[in-house]
Design a protein around this nucleic acid. Sequence first.
RNA 1: GGAGAGGUGGCAGAGUGGUCGAUUGCGCGGGUUUGCUAAACCCGUGAACUGUUAAAGGUUCCGCAGGUUCAAAUCCUGUCCUCUCCGCCA
Length: 426
Amino acid sequence: MLDRKFILENADAVILNCVNRGLKADVPRFVELETQRRTLQQELEKNQTAANAVAKSVGKAASPEEREVKKEEGRLLREKNAAINAQLEQIEIELDRIQRLIPNMAHPDCPIGADDQSNCRRTLGKTPIPQFDFKPLDHVTIGEKLDLIDFEAGARVAGAGFYFLKNEAVLLELALQRYAVEILMEAGFTLTSTPDLARNEILQGTGFIPRGQETQIYSIDNSDLSLVATAEITLGGMLAGQTVEAEILPLRICGISHCFRTEAGAAGRASRGLYRVHQFTKIEMFAFTLPEQSEAMHQELLDLECKIFDGLGIPYQVVDTATGDLGGPAYRKFDLEAWMPGRGEYGEITSTSNCTDYQARRLNARFKVKGEKGTKFLHTLNGTAVAISRALVAIMELYQYKDGDKYGIVVPEALRPFVGKKVIER
RNA sequence: GGAGAGGUGGCAGAGUGGUCGAUUGCGCGGGUUUGCUAAACCCGUGAACUGUUAAAGGUUCCGCAGGUUCAAAUCCUGUCCUCUCCGCCA
């Protein structure tokens, strides 16, 4: 979330930002309430000062009668405080409700626009889009022909949107993980495999909303836990409530987790097969940085994503996401979109966001500079290294071939050491 | 799952209703003494919010959330976490 004082002092900019991002938040009401809250808070503190003085004087009272008088005085002050507190609580609830709706400020260079139509293409990857001398199949059909994915069994076991990977698809899943992890290790990332569940408090801290009407989140009955939608949640939560020394920053962390998404309301041809599923494995990059380091780190995460997908020989475009298409916590977001022949269009395969101090404020994750007084909020960034299901869509569709009436998939060179073969055929 | 113990400042560890935002030791910062280093001695040393040009001042914080009381680190309730023992288990 944004700092309250910042909202108060920059109300116009905050309102404009909400408009650019297509979000409705009652900022004027927030300003009014926050101003009220401050006045009440001061009154409360003044009153408390008096109450503290009275409490101290009771012990020093000369006579039992005087003591009783003081006690009564204290009682009255407490009642007055309770009344102010009740008012404050009401205001606090509404303030918090509005504050949660206010998104992060957007980077000044961020393209302004209502939706992904305004996204701006920055660069292309190194791999050209392949030409086929036959009509390329989509990954669902190839998966069926080569016995790589079983959607029917997935649906029987857990419902539509679940699947079994089979045979070489499993080897590809493991290979992609190993391939990505090696690149990240070399780039100085600490490897982790994270919990797949997290407390709702942590979800909210990172900007995810459990149990809402249109929530993307599965929650566990009779508990305050939810299945994570991304390791961004657990990695960000690692430093919740912590204050770290500035000298250990930036921290680069890689997290392997399963990701669970309800995908409420998402269906249709564009979501066919593995493209939009309820569960997938993902290697996530996460960074905690000093404020002045976060822009360079964002570029670093983007460069790593490019390196990973150039290395896999997957053609992609890098997209600078428009204001209306940013998530709430993001200050700026870059997506890699891979060419997917089965779809006949680009499809998102990675996403990296700089969340500045927006998540850290809610998580209360701070840093301290040695020798200086006070603490400040960290900056947090996240980026997809590999989302296995989407990477599989791209690989299966881009690397397919037809030999007579037999279909097959060439294993990308970078994955061959881990898969142990050059082609997948039946 | 059952039984018990405990969570206090960077660390260790006192503190069972007011004199406690907290004894003490270590650590850390500064100083004195001193060929150098060390030792010794002295002074200082938590955070958030608020306030000010800067200060002073004020409020809050002893895992977290409530409650009792004029007054809570201290009493009560809930909750989270850690440790020990027993049971179960990949």
